[in-house]
Write a protein that binds this DNA or RNA. Structure first.
Length: 214
DNA sequence: AAGCAAGTCCTTCCCGTCAT
DNA sequence: ATGACGGGAAGGACTTGCTT
């Protein structure tokens, strides 16, 4: 069984033990894993069971996976009893998403806000301008700015930058890619601009973060 | 030599404000 | 909800210096 700790998946994949198999990891580790191990199918689900290889996304997903296995081997009633003992109200299904929905994360149902953030999160490497986002939403740039200020207390540009820098932070922590490479992958045109923005956001230089993680 | 950080200068574009 | 406008922040290009 693979642990919820993603390093286990990385080690086993590096050893070739997951070739041709389906696994899952914590959503923050997925991009790096997929890039390094193209021969392994990594999906974003709570857990995966493929030919005696058990993997889960970590956290409570391990409990969900255990309950599913008990239900398969010993029946649903026993799994339910154990779930109640664990004060785990119900076992979530395997295909359930790891991350909370955008509506939950943003704390707003505003369709302009939710769709704008979804566009931002799907265009990290080649960021869209505020005008382009507004055009795709059928709203004016001014309207998009107002919605962000009302619900998030910041400008669209500031939120977009935060998303890209958090992605960069995750890549620096979990991959061996160069800082320059990561800067480009997160939509910064130069490492100088990236470094400046990164230090402003996290109060630590990209290279210092990598050194600290070793 | 390569990678990274920091500084400078100029340009672009975003943001806040106000009016409609 | 939208448009106009001015100011300021961020980006782009380039250079220099430091570290490995």
């Amino acid at each position: 069984m693979l642990g919820g700790i993603d390093t286990g998946c990385f080690s086993l994949a590096a050893a070739g033990l997951l070739d041709g198999r389906v696994v899952t990891l914590h959503w923050e580790s997925l991009p790096v894993f997929r890039e390094r191990f193209a021969q392994v199918t990594a999906v974003e689900s709570l857990y995966e069971i493929d030919a005696r290889r058990f993997s889960c996304a970590g956290g409570m997903a391990a409990t969900d996976m255990m309950l599913a296995d008990i239900a398969t081997r010993h029946g649903g009633p026993l799994a339910t009893q154990i779930a109640e003992q664990l004060i785990h109200d119900r076992a979530r299904i395997m295909a359930g998403g790891q991350r909370r929905s955008l509506v939950e994360r943003l704390g707003s149902h505003d369709p302009v806000l939710v769709r704008a953030v979804a566009l931002m999160e799907s265009h990290i490497e080649a960021p869209l301008s505020l005008t382009a986002i507004a055009q795709r939403l059928g709203r004016s740039p001014r309207r998009v700015q107002t919605v962000f200020a009302q619900h998030l207390g910041c400008s669209p540009g500031a939120w977009y930058r935060k998303i890209r820098l958090e992605q960069a932070h995750a890549l620096i922590s979990a991959s061996e890619r160069s800082i320059t490479d990561i800067a480009m992958a997160c939509g910064f045109v130069s490492v100088a601009v990236f470094s400046r923005a990164f230090k402003r956001q996290f109060a630590i230089a990209p290279s210092a973060l990598r050194s600290a993680g070793k």
